[in-house]
Design a protein around this nucleic acid. Structure first.
Lengths: 201, 201
DNA sequence: AAGTAACCACACCGGTCGGTATACTGTCAG
DNA sequence: CTGACAGTATACCGACCGGTGTGGTTACTT
């Protein structure tokens, strides 16, 4: 069993060595400390690069933010592929549960929750160039839930996908905001019970 | 039936007229546009007040932020009291469902989701003076869920409260980040099914 | 009458923000 | 040989940030 919904497979634009260092430094700083509090000077310094180079490569801070989220999205998808390969789910239901199980590992070692949710709050403006990446990430996992539910022959896959999304996002945000360390595990148990009790079409 | 868990009943410090205007303006601006993007000058201007007066009343922007969240918490509690009085729940289960029903009305007309979650992301620093208010708000509703579940004689009230919290927070964040307009209604349905299927102690 | 709290107007502070300009160096392909 | 490109270093820009200081005006209290 594998994931069903295509994600954007357009290859990430290749980066120059300095560009790579900038994006790596920006990714760490943005996620660890927040997008608005981290200035471009701090990023350039961390990447051992001139501000000029940063602007030559990325054009603006906003576009660097978009690149950060795009990369984070790719890394997350690669992480999911890896997790799926390890857990070898044999039914669509098991795929869904594997996605929840992956949450625990994904959040392990970080206290800052979901970089996309955080970015959505920090950027706020709906027309920000990074916003499509954020909404796209959330809608991808929802539609993956829905596709797996459909394949499994479960009733009302849309409603089920909505509820699974609530558990998924609730775990991410409770982990961070409510200091609920076990949120991913709770979500996994809740998802398992939800699937077990859900009617077939 | 009524709420069980005491919230902080210490009366809000009375404000001078100018202080009142400042806090009102700050509340709107902070929630609508974000905490970090709104400067003290903008708040003073909106309240038709001198920056000097703002600092005489609140001391610093951080303490004004804390006052904003404290007030928002009180307003939310008053809103819940109102909703409970209207819906007249007759069992602990109905109280829980009324809290979810209240979510829909609470979010109606705003696109920015939960002010506490947003603040937690924007402030980030765990030692910020406003952080206790944020975490307190989340833990209050969790313990209210748990208390009602206990009163209802349901098994493992802690686990149930955790799962209800995930749905609650998931609705708040999906409403905002994933542009899921119906998130509160979905959460209410999911909570109803969860309670209906939960074993008794 | 004196004091005090609550305001106003306004000017000012050092620091940081995102972003630009100028000028120079190394490397590599046509 | 000669561009073009990737990079360095440094200086600069206006705008805005949170926060302070000075001085003066009401209005209510003691």
């Amino acid at each position: 069993m594998r994931l069903l919904v295509d994600r954007d497979v357009s290859a990430a634009a290749p980066l120059t060595p300095a560009g790579e260092r900038i994006l790596t430094a920006a990714s760490t700083l943005f996620y660890e400390r927040g997008i608005r509090v981290v200035g471009v000077d701090a990023i350039a310094a961390a990447a051992e690069v001139t501000k000029k180079t940063l602007y030559d490569r990325f054009g603006s801070k906003d576009r660097l933010i978009a690149a950060y989220l795009d990369r984070r999205n790719r890394v997350w998808h690669a992480f999911l592929d890896e997790q799926l390969a390890e857990r070898q789910p044999r039914t669509p239901e098991e795929v869904i549960l594997a996605l929840f199980a992956a949450l625990t590992d994904w959040l392990a070692g970080s206290r800052n929750g979901c970089g996309f949710i955080n970015a959505s709050v920090e950027l706020a403006a709906p027309d920000h160039p990074a916003m499509p990446v954020i909404v796209g990430q959330k809608q991808w996992i929802r539609s993956e839930f829905e596709a797996q539910a459909t394949l499994a022959g479960l009733a009302d896959p849309g409603e089920l996908a909505d509820r699974l999304l609530l558990l998924h996002e609730g775990a991410l945000v409770s982990f961070r905001v409510a200091a609920m360390d076990r949120a991913p595990e709770v979500a996994a148990r809740a998802a398992a019970d939800l699937l077990a009790g859900w009617p077939r079409a």
